[in-house]
Design a protein around this nucleic acid. Structure first.
Lengths: 301, 301
DNA sequence: CTACTTGATACCTTTAAGGTATTACCAATT
DNA sequence: AATTGGTAATACCTTAAAGGTATCAAGTAG
């Protein structure tokens, strides 16, 4: 049994005539006759009655014709779906996201990807930095989003953007009217920091900045993420330094003001990490979307 | 593309090693390598990653493996059905069954059908709801049994019975002596639910019932099927709500008690699904047996 | 009966699958 | 760093089988 034989059989069944079917198949009549005979031999069933005008399907032949069409269509489907999967247009992509990164950039990228590759099922996982790295290695996810990543031998990363620092202030605070706050103005003021968790993280950047500027940092609370930190500002716990992209989050009584008087390297990156040896087309397609997003971002700025 | 190549591909995918697969296929390694290469060329997709230990499926390869198995099984079916038709026998009916439905109703129906049509070869397939629908559309099965089916344009269904709810209890539990358990008595008690998988399912029904009765549902475990759920009851994990037809399953230390105080719509159907445009005499015969079974069931009640 | 059409057969050519020997490659080990 | 064991890939040859040409046999129509 052979796909060729099935195709030949369907042609003969449709033409009800071996010679005509042979022409349609661009072969000569004798080999076609032989292929049909072989098929009948193998199935041990007569598929056609030979008549003077050509051939006619037996009832078994009629049944086999239906089956044959199903088989051919399933094969066609399989080819097409596999090709699409090979181009990254079909499948499932597991993506890890983290606390404050979710606020606008990541949804934007995911929305673009979904539009470009509607056949791909995106599954999101909330994971800390350490969890993301472990999950990448175990192939439970293909991409992770995070900040301040130390380079690793088996993991590559692409920086998406660099956030400047901003200060979250209660709007009834004297500093809230200023267009720019200088770091020195926060000397010994109560500060809420985040996140708890794997180093290096955003806290380390913030404390380095304070240290280099010779300003005393008075940490009153350490919380799990930006949202909680900003909520505490709203609750009057003090100031909170945040990456500028977190400023899309609006809470009652909280204003965001750019932080001035900082060195150029006082920024946090948002990066996208993936296994160095993952060459799957889905990942490539995703990274292409990330790059496109990134270059568009740069052109705007 | 060739059936031979598909068979070869499946063998390599299963062995994860071209040399071993070649042995299994009783050919030598080089031609097998070449056939796989040809297949990849034709599909223009890399199906395997070559590693030091052998080969590994790419995601496209994984997809093609599923498709390939479907194709091979359809071909096998086609051959068998055609041969039977040629011998004047009735044929073969592929039936999909699922987890807990197998316990008594389905075997009863199959037994009746086998008695009435001894010439028909019934081939059973274990499939989830989603798999059944896909397999119906690809004609790999003709009938499926399942519960809680949402209506679909191309698929018809016949309800066989409606199961009331029962509670599986450990027999050393105080409630185990009662003839009837009221839902309120399960307030905040540990509950095991099933199944995992496609919605809507039995869990949704159960949680709706709890909600409407204003009773707090305290889910301690979610498991794959009724058998596992009841096994956990036996293991002391708590209660488990089941469709009454699952109560034929006896496990040590487990008692089944009817659940009272429920609305009339607190039932799960067991239904039989098939393609709307399948007019094969075999399917009609099967559905006739199902109807007969159903009406007999109603007369008893 | 003859002309014509059909599928079947005989025999040759060509394509492609399968085999053997060998190479290239990677990883683990020494 | 070199070696070994196991893997897939390549080169080249052999063989099986698909396809082609010529012809035959068997019906049907005129």
């Amino acid at each position: 049994m052979d796909i060729r034989q099935i195709r030949y059989f369907v042609a003969v069944a449709e033409e009800r005539n071996i010679g005509r079917a042979a022409k349609r198949l661009f072969i000569s009549q004798p080999p076609l006759t032989r292929q049909i005979q072989q098929l009948e031999d193998e199935l041990q069933v007569k598929l056609f009655e030979r008549t003077a005008k050509g051939v006619e399907l037996t009832s078994a032949g009629q049944l086999f014709l239906n089956e044959s069409r199903n088989i051919l269509s399933l094969i066609e489907q399989a080819q097409e779906r596999t090709q699409r999967a090979g181009k990254g247009q079909l499948g499932r992509l597991d993506v890890a996201i983290f606390g404050s990164g979710i606020l606008n950039t990541i949804p934007d990228i995911l929305k673009r990807f979904k539009t470009a590759y509607p056949g791909v099922n995106i599954v999101l996982h909330q994971m800390s930095k350490a969890e993301q790295i472990e999950a990448l290695r175990q192939k439970r996810i293909s991409v992770g989003f995070n900040r301040l990543l130390a380079p690793l031998p088996d993991i590559d990363s692409t920086m998406i953007l660099q956030d400047k620092l901003m200060v979250a202030v209660r709007d009834d605070h004297p500093l809230a009217t200023k267009p720019l706050i200088n770091l020195k103005e926060l000397d010994n003021e109560p500060i809420v920091v985040f996140p708890k968790g794997a180093r290096p993280n955003f806290v380390d950047l913030v404390s380095r900045v304070f240290q280099e500027a010779g300003v005393t940092m008075n940490i009153t609370q350490t919380v799990i993420d930006a949202v909680t930190g900003i909520a505490l500002v709203s609750g009057g716990f003090g100031f909170c330094l945040i990456p500028s992209s977190a400023s899309v989050l609006q809470l009652p009584g909280v204003k965001y003001i750019p932080l001035g008087g900082l060195p150029d390297n006082a920024t946090v990156d948002l990066s996208c990490i993936y296994l160095k040896d993952d060459h799957s087309p889905l990942l490539s397609a995703f990274l292409a979307v990330v790059h496109e997003y990134k270059s568009q971002l740069n052109n705007q700025a």
